[in-house]
Computed example of a mutant assay.
Amino acid sequence: MTRLVDEVPARLFHHCFDAAYRVFHQYGSSVVKTAVCSVMYIGGMACAWESVSDLDGWGSNPFRTLLRVFEYGHWLLGMDDEQLYLF
């Protein structure tokens, strides 16, 4: 459990920040931050779910599907009134 809490967020951050910066830096730091935070949030929730998945009712991790979407290079994002939203 300690490894899950200590190492996974750091690895997620460094891995996704490098990629997000490379792709989105021309759109500004807020876009890079939104991309990184979305991966960190969904990755963190997926890890938290896995840590309790052996309890009754927690077997199927719904965040795995979202992680697969990110792995394929897609980002569930929308824009409204010049504001980015993560779906």
Score class of each variant (00 low, 15 high):
29 S>D: 12
29 S>Q: 13
29 S>V: 12
29 S>E: 14
29 S>C: 05
30 S>V: 14
31 V>W: 08
31 V>S: 13
31 V>F: 13
32 V>M: 06
32 V>C: 06
32 V>E: 05
33 K>S: 15
33 K>H: 14
33 K>Y: 10
34 T>S: 14
34 T>Y: 05
34 T>M: 12
35 A>Q: 07
35 A>K: 01
35 A>I: 01
35 A>E: 06
35 A>G: 03
36 V>W: 02
36 V>L: 05
38 S>D: 15
38 S>Q: 12
38 S>V: 06
39 V>T: 11
39 V>M: 12
39 V>R: 13
40 M>V: 12
40 M>F: 07
40 M>R: 08
40 M>H: 09
41 Y>A: 13
41 Y>C: 09
41 Y>T: 12
42 I>K: 06
45 M>K: 13
45 M>G: 00
45 M>W: 07
45 M>F: 07
46 A>S: 12
46 A>F: 02
46 A>G: 07
47 C>F: 01
47 C>H: 02
47 C>P: 01
47 C>K: 03
48 A>R: 03
49 W>I: 00
49 W>P: 00
49 W>D: 01
49 W>M: 11
50 E>C: 02
51 S>M: 11
51 S>N: 12
51 S>G: 08
51 S>I: 01
52 V>E: 03
52 V>W: 01
53 S>E: 09
53 S>G: 01
53 S>D: 09
53 S>Y: 01
55 L>I: 04
55 L>S: 06
56 D>C: 05
56 D>Y: 11
56 D>L: 11
57 G>V: 04
57 G>P: 08
57 G>W: 02
57 G>Q: 04
58 W>F: 15
58 W>G: 00
58 W>E: 03
59 G>A: 14
60 S>I: 13
61 N>W: 00
61 N>Y: 00
61 N>C: 00
61 N>H: 00
61 N>I: 02
61 N>P: 02
61 N>R: 00
61 N>V: 00
62 P>M: 05
62 P>E: 06
62 P>S: 07
62 P>K: 04
62 P>A: 07
62 P>C: 06
63 F>P: 03
63 F>A: 01
64 R>F: 05
64 R>I: 10
64 R>A: 07
64 R>V: 11
64 R>G: 13
65 T>C: 04
65 T>H: 12
66 L>M: 11
66 L>C: 06
66 L>Y: 13
67 L>N: 09
67 L>H: 03
67 L>E: 08
67 L>V: 07
68 R>G: 11
68 R>P: 02
68 R>I: 08
68 R>S: 14
68 R>V: 10
69 V>C: 08
69 V>I: 15
69 V>M: 10
69 V>R: 10
69 V>A: 08
